[in-house]
């Protein structure tokens, strides 16, 4: 089971596309994910010492912020991080129990909490820090791509999307089939030059990150030629004879 499914061309690859150009780091995707999943497929998502020093918990989505570059070219970038539902992820193959699996039909990487032994090896094998140990229950948990929403027939169709996508106020998160080159997300990735994280590791992440756009350059140049207050005696005279009507 922890052998990876054969990827055939055109195979469905559900995933997220995250737009680093509009993410403002509001943490909505992180808390909404926590909220949805606490009572969802993987719930609960325990919090340890919640009201004391060292409070921490299980989150499937965490939002960092970075500074890239220096001086005038520098930027601040907010960066949400969750499971990338990689095509060839070692987090699945290392699992000794078969608890960790990648679904053939949509590529979602899941953990079966009923057989996971909590060895933690998959977390070591994930370069992206996307796996979260429920230390209370002793099992590994992770982003499910909201598997209990996206196919949920009790939810209106427009809402059958991951919680983090629906809640994002800046529309920085998109969900869809990245295996289909004609899907909206694939087109978006193509148009905006979507990036893989750590491609050098060879995990082939499905999720893509849209880079912050180039800053638009100055739209106009200052008019130096216009007479300045210093040049002419009374610049106000310019307006004296303007004929204005209502």
């Amino acid at each position: 089971m922890t052998c990876l499914p054969e990827i055939t061309p055109g195979q469905k690859k559900l995933g997220l596309v995250i737009d680093l150009d509009t993410c403002v780091g509001c943490q909505a995707c992180a808390t909404n994910c926590k909220e949805w999943n606490s009572s969802g497929h993987s719930g609960p998502l325990p919090d340890l010492k919640p009201y004391s020093a060292g409070a921490e918990g299980v989150w499937f989505n965490r939002v960092h912020s970075y500074e890239a570059g220096e001086g005038a070219d520098g930027r601040t970038v907010h960066f949400p991080r969750s499971c990338l539902h990689c095509e060839t992820p070692d987090c699945v193959t290392v699992c000794p129990t078969g608890a960790s699996y990648k679904r053939i039909e949509d590529g979602i990487v899941l953990v079966d909490h009923d057989i996971c032994i909590g060895c933690g090896l998959c977390a070591w094998a994930c370069p992206y820090g996307a796996r979260e140990m429920d230390e209370d229950e002793g099992v590994m948990k992770k982003c499910t791509l909201c598997i209990d929403r996206i196919y949920n027939e009790t939810i209106p169709e427009a809402q059958r999307q991951p919680a983090c996508v629906l809640t994002c106020p800046t529309n920085a998160r998109h969900f869809g089939d990245l295996g289909d080159p004609e899907s909206d997300v694939s087109k978006l990735v193509a148009a905006r030059g979507g990036q893989d994280l750590m491609p050098e590791l060879g995990y082939k992440p499905v999720n893509k990150y849209l880079p912050p756009r180039k800053r638009s350059s100055a739209a106009a140049t200052p008019q130096e030629a216009v007479p300045t207050a210093m040049d002419i005696k009374n610049p106000l005279l310019r307006w004296m004879d303007k004929v204005l009507t209502r």
């Binding site: 497929h41 679904r103 039909e105 079966d112 009923d114 996206i150 196919y151 949920n152 027939e153 059958r160």
Partner: peptide, 16 residues
Amino acid sequence: LRPLASPSPDKHVEYS
């Protein structure tokens, strides 16, 4: 998003 086709059953997942 176009609604997803119904997934094949996965005994670990309750979809709806």
